[in-house]
Design a protein around this nucleic acid. Structure first.
Lengths: 159, 159
DNA sequence: AGTCGTTCTGCGCAATCTGATCAGTGATGG
DNA sequence: CCATCACTGATCAGATTGCGCAGAACGACT
């Protein structure tokens, strides 16, 4: 399998990550390649799904949701996960959810305005029928902010 | 405290999330407001930190890292978290890390090329001195992809 | 060696967008 | 009543985009 990305792709992605507002033209100047090349590379990366989008990254904390927590949900086996996921998707404070190993469990990342507010969010979550038990871990500090950039370099090196 | 965002901000953010490539001018047309207004709102949102950036969103799976897992690390109390975080930051497969409630524990999101590769990543993580024990949860499916948009609406409604 | 397919280059054009600015207007609050 | 603030609608020069094209470079295959 041919490498998903090459060295130029890496430099391009890193450049875009560092200075998202620069356009294709400016990027081509920085990378010392033709404008068409940058355009083609970008299109290819998007087409391959490596770049999912350029949407604005929102900061929950700046919106007043300063508390982050991870909650593990034990799901009643009958019924499956889908209805539960549907329920979770109606709660804005549930940012993401994964099914994980270990009988019928779900791991969610949630946010809240305060610890008291967190209680409300959790209550809302567990109000659903199919949820048997919930176990919450409050995030105290973000030791390593979400990042994917190092991965691109690794993908290019290995192939 | 005055609401961080108002209804126009919400529409703007949602529009940008749906179609990131449209410029300020096109956005102003869609929202039926003056271009300067959109520009001012955007600047304000960025200045307030609500919008952290417009960087490309990368998909680890498209880069060959199809396996996601969450790993809880028990840290030796003496020494603190910082050295451990520094160690983790050197491993590209560690996408984020949070300190969580429960004596000296760290929760990380990691990715790998395969289950076998996951073992390598875990080994690399636990190779560090200050880490006493690690417990891994493999993500089987993404029930709810990461999202923050609903939060903006909530923030605007509540205030 | 010869040929093909792909990628990159360098160029040009028309159309569009950007950043900045300005005067006028309506709403808010002192 | 007046000051302040946000929004409007407009203008301007300059930069950028989307698009296509011909030629060169490169590797793969016959």
């Amino acid at each position: 399998m041919t490498p998903t990305v090459d060295e130029l792709d890496v430099r391009l992605v890193e450049l875009l990550a560092a200075e998202p507002r620069i356009g294709v033209l400016e990027a081509s100047r920085r990378l010392k390649v033709a404008r068409g090349t940058v355009q083609a590379r970008l299109d290819r990366l998007v087409a391959r799904g490596v770049i999912k989008g350029f949407g604005p990254e929102l900061d929950p904390a700046a919106l007043g949701f300063g508390v982050t927590a991870f909650i593990t949900l034990e799901i009643r086996q009958s019924g499956g996960h889908d209805p539960v996921a549907a329920h979770l998707s109606t709660i804005p404070e549930v940012l993401e959810a994964y099914t994980i190993t270990g009988g019928g469990d779900l791991l969610c990342r949630i946010v809240a305005r305060s610890n008291a507010d967190l209680q409300r969010v959790i209550d809302e979550i567990v109000s659903y029928d199919g949820i048997l038990r919930a176990s919450t871990l409050i995030a105290l500090a973000e030791q390593l902010p979400y990042r994917t950039l190092p991965l691109v370099g690794k993908a290019a090196r290995h192939g």
